[in-house]
C-alpha cells in the first residue's frame, strides 16, 4: 500500500482528477444547458484532485525535509496547487461561469506536463533553504504569487474571449458561459493586486536575509525575480491610474504570466548544490 502511494503516484491521481474535471466541464459545454449537479461534480473532482496533489506534495516535503520547491517539477506542481486554492476562493463569485473549467484545464496541463517530463525531477537543490523557515516562506510565497498570476492569466484570457465575442457578435457556445466584461476586469485587478502584494512580501522577506549573505543568491535569479516583480508592479500602477485598461490590460496580464513562467527555468537552473534523485530518495 505504502509503496503504491508514493508522492508521484498521489500527484498523478491529483492531475488525473483535474483532467477529469476539465473533460466533464468540456462535455457539458457542448450542451446548451448544463446537466443538474454539474457544478457539484466538477467541484468534487477538483477538490479531490487538489487533495491528492496536496498529499503528494506533503509526502515529498517529508522526504526532502522541507518545502518541496527544490526543482522545476516541484515548483510547477506548487503553481498548479496554488491556482486551485485561489479558484476555491475566487470561483464562488463566478456564478455558473467557466473559471472552474479553465482552472481545471490549466492545473491539469501544468501537473501532467511536470509529471511527463522526467528531466524536471531528476535533480533537486540540496538544503536550498538552509533549514531557514523564513527562506522557505519567501520561496513558498513567491511560488504562490505565481499561482495567483496564473489564475490572473486565465481570467485575462476569459476577458479577451468575452471582449472578442461581444465585439464580433459571436455570443453562443463557450461565450455564453463567460462572466461579464466588468466582472472580469474587476477580478483581474484584484488578482493582480494580490499577486503583487504576495510577491512584494516574499521579496521583502528574501531581501532581509539576502543582505546578510549576498553570495547566497545568484544574480540571474535576483535580476529575473526583480524584473518580474517590477513589471507586475508597474502594470498594477498603470491599471490603478486607468492608463492600462480593458483588452490591453488583459493582454499584458496574459503575456506577463507566460514570461514569468518561462523565467522559472533560469531561476531554478542558477541554483547550486543539486543532487540526483533516485526512486529511493523520493
Amino acid at each position: 500500500m505504502s509503496s503504491l502511494l508514493t508522492d508521484r503516484a498521489l500527484l498523478w491521481l491529483g492531475a488525473l482528477l483535474y483532467l477529469a474535471g476539465f473533460l466533464t466541464g468540456l462535455v457539458a459545454l457542448t450542451r446548451r444547458t448544463a446537466p443538474a449537479g454539474l457544478r457539484t461534480i466538477l467541484n468534487t473532482l477538483l477538490v479531490g484532485g487538489w487533495g491528492f496533489q496536496m498529499a503528494g506534495l506533503y509526502v515529498r516535503g517529508l522526504a526532502v525535509g522541507g518545502c518541496p520547491l527544490g526543482n522545476t517539477f516541484e515548483i510547477v506542481q506548487f503553481v498548479a496547487w496554488s491556482a486551485m486554492v485561489l479558484y476555491f476562493f475566487v470561483g464562488t463569485t463566478f456564478r455558473g461561469s467557466l473559471l472552474g473549467l479553465f482552472t481545471a484545464g490549466y492545473a491539469a496541463s501544468l501537473a501532467l506536463v511536470s509529471l511527463l517530463v522526467p528531466a524536471w525531477d531528476l535533480t533537486r537543490g540540496q538544503k536550498i533553504f538552509g533549514n531557514n523557515p523564513w527562506i522557505e516562506l519567501h520561496a513558498a510565497l513567491a511560488v504562490f504569487s505565481y499561482g495567483v498570476f496564473g489564475l490572473l492569466a486565465l481570467t485575462a484570457l476569459m476577458h479577451l474571449l468575452q471582449n472578442w465575442s461581444l465585439k464580433h457578435k459571436r455570443l453562443n457556445g463557450l461565450f455564453w458561459f463567460l462572466p461579464s466584461v466588468v466582472q472580469l476586469d474587476q477580478i483581474n485587478f484584484r488578482l493582480l493586486m494580490l499577486g503583487v502584494l504576495l510577491l512584494t512580501f516574499s521579496l521583502g522577506v528574501g531581501a532581509l536575509w539576502w543582505v546578510r549573505d549576498t553570495a547566497s543568491v545568484d544574480y540571474p535569479k535576483l535580476f529575473v525575480t526583480l524584473g518580474v516583480w517590477s513589471v507586475y508592479l508597474v502594470v498594477w500602477l498603470l491599471r490603478w491610474r486607468a492608463k492600462l485598461v480593458s483588452v490591453r490590460f488583459a493582454w499584458v496580464c496574459l503575456v506577463m504570466f507566460i514570461i514569468a513562467l518561462l523565467s522559472l527555468g533560469p531561476v531554478n537552473s542558477s541554483r547550486h548544490h543539486e543532487v540526483v534523485l533516485t526512486p529511493g530518495s523520493r
Binding site: 446548451r32 468575452q162 461581444l166 461579464s180 466584461v181 466588468v182
Partner: peptide, 20 residues
C-alpha cells in the same frame, strides 16, 4: 427559454454580459 427573442430584451441581455 435560453436567449432573448425581442430586440429590447436582447439589448438588455447584452448589457448584462458587459456589466453584470
Amino acid at each position: 427559454g435560453a436567449g432573448q427573442v425581442s430586440t429590447a430584451t436582447v439589448a438588455v441581455d447584452l448589457a448584462g454580459r458587459i456589466f453584470g
